[in-house]
Design a protein around this nucleic acid. Structure first.
Lengths: 164, 164
DNA sequence: GGTACCGTACTCGGATAAGCAATGTCCGAGTTCGTTGGG
DNA sequence: CCCAACGAACTCGGACATTGCTTATCCGAGTACGGTACC
């Protein structure tokens, strides 16, 4: 089981964007080189966030990306579902209905598969934990964990990338 | 993010094996046709369980698979880690250390990445929920959910597959 | 009749190809800014 | 000097190759059973 790398990339990008003044935008290419990741492919993930409404994109010469809504209203679950896809990791193939010992009566299989339910319970716990963390929370924690000089260097670097 | 299909298959197999009398073994090929899945590939997943000690395999003409330890001591987390691999879904690439704004001082990055910690929290909740469910619990639930006639048909079918 | 040996059938285990999704890259549509020509 | 129109540069968005992993398959090593020859 492997999650798309775009999740990690876009979360870091969102943290950066959440720290900008309102209305400021940053081009995707600048976000890519800021994190040392392949630019064109990061754009693919950013597009997914744009479709989900998490990001808002301004085309044109002074265009770029900005948050689509306040960071308090963006959860990590929203980001993961947008980038990695909404389908759960465990997908029940209903193999209980296959094989020589299965029942021909469809009514037997109306209730969900027991194995499926067990796995889904764990997956719901995972989603619940992701939904409990907003981008605003994460930005606060990151802000406290990074030394002042690194933050200043990032602010200076961003000054040459921000389009307002 | 997609989990290996072998997880679903092997869990169903383990539930079947947990319902057998002690000492009884079932060949992997029989387990495959019982669930309508490709036999040779199911064997690959069963081998992983065997390496992990969850299953015990008896080679030879009257050989087959049986549980490696009591079903009360087998959790769903054990199965998932054995079949799908022990690596977490989210793997931190430490992209905070890359890019023009990163610090050259390694001491800054001794504490774990904040984004990594947030994702790990969710993943730990997922694992905790999986570890809380034993194979014995699951077998009891499956036993209650399946009608008596289907269970009897499975018992009859297994009678021609069990090697003791 | 009992026993030891041998051949056969069946099992698991690891090594080997095919299919597909994720990764990585590219080029086109659209928008804004700077420039230039005219009034 | 002010204004409008034009050209150019830069942006996002979607369509196109390529790599890696999951899926699927096969064949070889090892073991227990049944039959057979021998004592």
């Amino acid at each position: 089981m492997k999650m798309s790398e775009g999740v990690e990339w876009t979360i870091h990008c969102l943290v950066v964007l959440a720290g900008l003044p309102p209305g400021a935008t940053v081009p995707g290419a600048r976000l890519a080189e800021l994190h040392g990741v392949p630019g064109p492919y990061l754009g693919k993930s950013l597009q997914a966030l744009s479709r989900a409404g998490i990001l808002r994109s301004d085309p044109g010469a002074r265009g770029g990306y900005r948050l689509g809504r306040p960071p308090e209203e963006i959860t990590l679950l929203d980001v993961v579902l947008a980038v990695d896809g909404p389908e759960p990791a465990f997908r029940c193939m209903e193999i209980r209905q296959k094989g020589p010992a299965s029942s021909k009566d469809p009514a037997v299989y109306l209730k969900p598969c027991t194995v499926h339910a067990a796995m889904q319970r764990a997956e719901l716990a995972w989603r619940r934990e992701l939904a409990a963390q907003t981008l605003a929370d994460l930005r606060t924690r990151v802000h406290r964990a990074i030394p002042a000089d690194v933050q200043e260097r990032m602010r200076d670097w961003l000054a040459g990338a921000i389009r307002s």
